[in-house]
Amino acid sequence: MTHAHRQITLNGKPREVSALTLAAALGELGFADVKVATAVNGAFVPAAKRGETRLRDGDRVEVVSARVGG
């Protein structure tokens, strides 16, 4: 049975998403048209694979973008 929501951590904060995949979750969480890179549980998820990456309770999702750096 697919639960209605998944409890994940997004950029260190607990969030609840109804989306099943990372791609859908990005849309739900406000990253639909933001140029970002993603990792789930410490592993890089290429943009092309976000649609087939299923999210589970407890998943740690990191969403990053370009910043200044030395």
């Binding site: 950029n11 406000g30 990253f31 990053v64 973008s65 370009a66 750096g69």
Partner: peptide, 9 residues
């Protein structure tokens, strides 16, 4: 340059 957490929208 670097990568850091992005905010929704």
């Amino acid at each position: 340059v670097s990568l850091r957490r992005e905010q929704a929208r």
